[in-house]
């Protein structure tokens, strides 16, 4: 594990140099702020875009603060996850392609430490971004719409984090297995869509499913979700993450030979 610290440092420096440490949080904060702001200014926006005929009466119900925070979560589910997948699609595949990997692979390298170092840095940056995004969204929701108990928000963020980690691990494993970043992103997107589709079509039959974590997390805002199913889903997620972890380290060792010099 002595390598781990050094690999971590390398990974950290790389994330600073390719600006990921700045732009990923920036996007999540923007997503978090825009949702409450757009909802607050919706009447003015409609008026300014001028689509309404003279004398039209439009009753726009004011959304509750909980609804706004759920909308923020929806934004993270679509745009946010896409951004994370695109940002980390090339972590391992790109290294093999650009030749950085040769510098690493010629040394005696523990591939689990290698995979872990990438995972830890990517997870730290994406979780920090998601949290910052939620907190800024929360601040603006309070400013524009009213109070939500912070403990509810924290519960939601905490459980949603497991989902973020799952997506991240899928991307990293795909990046280790496939020849380039584009393919890895395509595979991760396909899996993401398929999982949600399967859960949408057949999900009524089971309550314990990792795909349901975002829903359960959102339920914390308005009440209590079904706790046994939630913990079951979290348990399955952790197991999947560990399995993908083993798979990722194994496949990155196996793909060692595919490195371009």
């Amino acid at each position: 594990m002595k390598h781990f610290g050094i690999l971590m440092q390398k990974e950290w420096r790389e994330n600073i140099r390719n600006y990921k440490i700045y732009w990923i949080p920036a996007i999540f904060i923007l997503l978090g702020i825009t949702e409450p702001a757009v909802n607050y200014f919706l009447p003015q926006i409609l008026e300014a875009s001028g689509g309404l005929p003279e004398g039209a009466v439009f009753e726009i119900p004011t959304p509750t603060p909980e609804q706004i925070l759920m909308a923020v979560l929806q934004q993270f589910q679509t745009i946010g996850m896409a951004v994370l997948i695109l940002a980390y699609m090339a972590t391992i595949a790109g290294e093999r392609k650009s030749g950085t990997a040769t510098l690493l692979y010629v040394r005696p390298l523990s591939f689990s430490a290698y995979f872990l170092s990438k995972w830890v840095v990517a997870a730290a940056i994406s979780l920090a971004s998601v949290w910052l995004g939620f907190f800024s969204g929360y601040y603006y929701t309070r400013l524009f719409f009213g109070e939500v108990e912070i403990i509810k928000l924290l519960q939601m963020i905490g459980f949603y984090s497991f989902w973020v980690l799952l997506i991240l691990t899928i991307v990293l494993a795909a990046s280790a297995a496939l020849p380039n970043g584009g393919l890895a992103a395509a595979a991760a997107f396909a899996l993401y869509v398929l999982l949600q589709l399967a859960d949408g079509l057949l999900g009524a039959n089971w309550s314990v499913s990792p795909v349901k974590i975002p829903q359960y997390a959102a339920t914390w805002l308005t009440g209590n979700p079904d706790l046994p199913s939630l913990w079951g889903a979290v348990g399955i997620t952790v197991v999947i993450i560990l399995v993908l972890f083993g798979f990722g380290s194994w496949i990155s060792r196996k793909n060692k030979a595919k490195t371009k010099v």
Partner: peptide, 20 residues
Amino acid sequence: LALLPILIIQLALMIFALVD
């Protein structure tokens, strides 16, 4: 003032990207 951060973040992203 409340909406200023949106502008600042957008500008910062743009400047980072342009400098790079």
